[in-house]
Design a protein around this nucleic acid. Structure first.
Lengths: 290, 290
DNA sequence: TTGTAAGCGTTATCAG
DNA sequence: CTGATAACGCTTACAA
């Protein structure tokens, strides 16, 4: 007869809200909506509502969302951390609220996280480039303080040294994980004498790669003959016929599903899964830009 | 001293949760993240937390989210409806919860909504195509039962009749608002005899246009000489140098900000803004596909 | 089986 | 001005 139970009062007594919070750094990067969809599909199926919060790579905003969600007694949290500044994140862990980290680990002993093997992925990408004959390969990265970036950089340097190539610091540039940053960095890289220029670029994500490609084309060079470009993530647009970006694919949607089921285990009290690090395998998708 | 007020108990007595719900049909379509960001930025500034829910164009899921959000006593709701089936939406309005509809109006007397003039936008796009000499222009639409689609179709037919062109039913096709749907429809359209083929396509959104373009290219035709394509929305990827999609732009981010400030007015009890329909102006962005 | 009372963590009100 | 207390709407446990 039109009666709606009041979930607030319910939550007060049951100490369970059938609600989880999802915090991501950039809803505008197609990578995150894809994992969010995986999480949401799994959550809906299990009777949960997910509250998606976007921090815009802003640590303050992240902390604020964290507090609000905790106050609101969400039963669990899935966080794609926007910084390595773990002081506020550590507080969460210690407060006992069930949390799963995605896409990047944080420095906390028993944090549960689901990440991709960034080192391996980057290494595969760069080794592929080397195989194709490239010797001067640039690294165009995102934010320096983000582990994702550090790990992909590590894979890059590892691939170089595995193949007896020296690391040229002038070919390593970082900015933010956005398209305009890739565009800006690549334009800088192209300013140097033609003989010192890289012949290939490994970009730390697809958005950066898209910016790199734009800069390359605007400078009258063609891809991949003058400049090979490889990205990371395999967002949907990477497969467009006009783009055909060679990139390291992450299982985005499945990562989301896995994140929720792992959180579910945690919430059900399966303490054994706490502190678990789940490492997923990347796969290099070869298309036409590199 | 580490004390966190319990927002649940607070909400119970204060009947205010400093929380709003945002329901959108497809987080995977870059159009929505962009408006969500506008909403979120405005909300955070005003001390609100926004709970983003993605219905996947699924009316059942929409209703479910609606109920949960109502139970949770969100102070307000911003909804991008995923269907015109307003029975459950009407219930919401009648329950008195402050609501702003975005991107499509619903059939309810005093609903407040922020929409773009779809008829005008489509008309501009198609008239541009006619101006460029096209006589056989196809309409590739999204879901038939969505007003957005109907209105854009209406603009299309209006542009034709304004210019003394007959409406050819065989050139009007609808599916869903996704890329694969555009791809599928265009392939069908290209099956007909070359002489009956359209020379231009107006797609009801950019995702569809991207699918159309893919089909056209795979059939060995070039754009825009063999087939001109115009989209709708102006998502970020439309401006990529490889894409350069001609499209009808919507002020996505500002639409989000406006949606929140309008909701704020409603929540503050400014009854005068209830039932208001805010109609935004589209602008045709001419690039290289048409 | 049906009904009543206690308590969840706040805030707001009303005596003192 | 301060400190005790009712009330918010529900669930659950226990008594009738």
């Amino acid at each position: 007869m039109g009666y709606q139970p009041n979930a607030i009062a319910q939550g007060l007594v049951k100490k369970e809200t059938k609600t989880i919070g999802l915090i991501i750094p950039d809803i505008t990067n197609p990578f995150f909506p894809e994992v969010a969809r995986g999480i949401e599909d799994a959550a809906v199926e299990a009777g949960y509502t997910v509250f998606l919060c976007n921090t815009n790579w802003n640590a303050e905003r992240e902390e604020r969302y964290l507090n609000v969600l905790m106050q609101k007694q969400v039963d669990g949290l899935i966080i794609g951390p926007s910084s390595e500044e773990v002081s506020h994140l550590g507080k969460i862990l210690d407060s006992g609220i069930k949390t799963v980290f995605i896409s990047r680990a944080i420095n906390h002993a028993n944090s549960t996280c689901i990440i991709i093997d960034n080192v391996l992925g980057a290494q595969q990408a760069v080794e592929y480039l080397i195989q194709r004959g490239h010797r001067k390969i640039a690294f165009v990265g995102g934010r320096e303080d983000i582990s994702t970036n550090r790990e992909r950089l590590q894979g890059y340097t590892q691939a170089l040294s595995n193949n007896g190539l020296a690391l040229d610091e002038s070919l390593v540039k970082t900015g933010s994980f956005k398209r305009d940053s890739g565009y800006f960095i690549m334009n800088q890289l192209l300013k140097s004498e033609a003989c010192n220029r890289p012949t290939a670029v490994f970009a730390a994500n697809d958005l950066l790669a898209l910016g790199v490609i734009q800069a390359v084309k605007e400078n009258g060079l063609s891809i991949p003959s003058d400049m090979a470009v490889v990205g990371f993530d395999d967002i949907e647009f990477a497969s467009l016929p006009e783009i055909q970006l060679t990139t390291v694919a992450q299982p985005k949607y499945d990562m989301g599903k896995l994140a929720f089921s792992t959180l579910m285990e945690l919430m059900r009290g399966g303490g054994y899964s706490s502190g678990r690090k789940i490492l997923l395998d990347p796969v290099l998708v070869i298309r036409e830009t590199g």
